[in-house]
Amino acid sequence: MNNQAASMQAVPAEANAPLVEVRELHRVFDLSKRWLNRVLEGSGKVVLTAVDGVDMTIRRGETYALVGESGSGKSTIAKMVVGLLPPTSGTVHINGVDIWGERGARQRQMRRKIQMIFQDPFASLNPRWRVGSIVAEPIKAFGLIADAHDRQARVGELLSLVGLDPLDAGKFPHEFSGGQRQRIAIARALASEPEFIVCDEPTSALDVSVQAQVLNLLRDLQERLGLTYLFISHNLAVVRHMATRVGVLYLGRLVEEAPSRELFSEPKHPYTRMLLDAVPDIGMEGVEREPIAGEIPNPVNPPPGCHFNPRCPHVMEHCRTTVPPLCEVNQANVLCHLYEGGALARPYGI
C-alpha cells in the first residue's frame, strides 16, 4: 500500500489523473442497546452496514456525483472521504496519500486540500460569529496568512469571488438569506485553497431560483480554480446538470457507475431505471406513469443477495441468494446479475 502511495505521488498532477481513490470502503454502525440492556432483555447485537464495499475513482477536475435515496449511505461516504468519520475498513487516498493512515504535519497538509460544503446553510455557519471570522477561520487554522490585515483583504477577495460584498464580512449569518449563506459557506470552503470539495446536498435546502445561482457558481468556480467535486444529491436533475460521472447507491452499495451522459441516456441497473422514471419533472407534464411498487427496505436488515431484489421487475432466482458481481458494460460498471457473462447492453429490449 505504501509503495503504491509513493509511486502515485511521483506521477505529475496532470488533468484526468486520479485525485481521489476509494477502495473497498465499508462502514458499520453499531445500533445495539447498551450491554446491560442486551443482557437483561436477551436481545442481540444490531448492526447497520451503511457503506458496503464501495470503490470510486475521482479524476482531477471532474465532478463525481453520488445519487441515492435515504439510507443509501451517501452522506456516510462523504464523511469518510473528507476525514470526519473513520471507515470500518477500506482506504481513501487523495493525491496518493492515505487520509486515514497519515498523522501530524502530512495529515494537516492534506486536510487543507479537502473541504466540504454542507446541506443546511442555516446550521453550517456559527450564528455567534461574524462572517469575516467564519471565512478567516480556515486561513488562521492552517496558518496561511499571518498578517491580520492581509487576512482581512483575502476574506474580502473570497467574498467577492462567491458574489458577495466584501463589506458583508462585518455582518452576522442571520442577516443573510439561505442562498447568500450558502455562498458564505462556499467562501469558507475556498479559504484553505482546496483542490477537492465534497458538496453534500448543497442546494436541497434552497429555493429553485437560488439553487440555479449556487449550481452555476459551483460550476464557475470549478472552471476558474480547477476544483474537483464529489457532489452528493438525491435530485437526479441537479446531478445530470452538474456531474461528469455518476455513481448510484442503493443500501450502501454502488449499483451503477457510469459517465453522466451514458447513465442518463442509457441507464442499466433496474434501480437506476426506476429512479429516472420516478422523478417528477417539468418536462413530463401530463404524462401518466406506472410508479414502481415498494419502498426502501430497512437498512438494518437488508434483503439477501441483491438488495434490490424485492422491488426489481426482472428478479431472477439467484438474485435472492447471491450478491451480483461487478459487470462492465460499455463505460459503465453495473452490479446486476442481468449483465453477467457478457455485455447484454439492453437486457429487456427497450
Binding site: 470526519l84 486536510r111 466540504m116
Partner: peptide, 26 residues
C-alpha cells in the same frame, strides 16, 4: 451535530478549541 461544528473539525481544530470557541457561545 450541527454542520458548523463539522466544518470546524474539518480544518483540524482541537476538540478543546471547538468546545470553547464554537459550542460554548451557543
Amino acid at each position: 451535530n450541527k454542520e458548523y461544528v463539522l466544518a470546524a473539525r474539518l480544518i483540524g481544530l482541537s476538540p478543546f478549541t471547538i468546545m470553547f470557541r464554537h459550542v460554548l457561545p451557543n
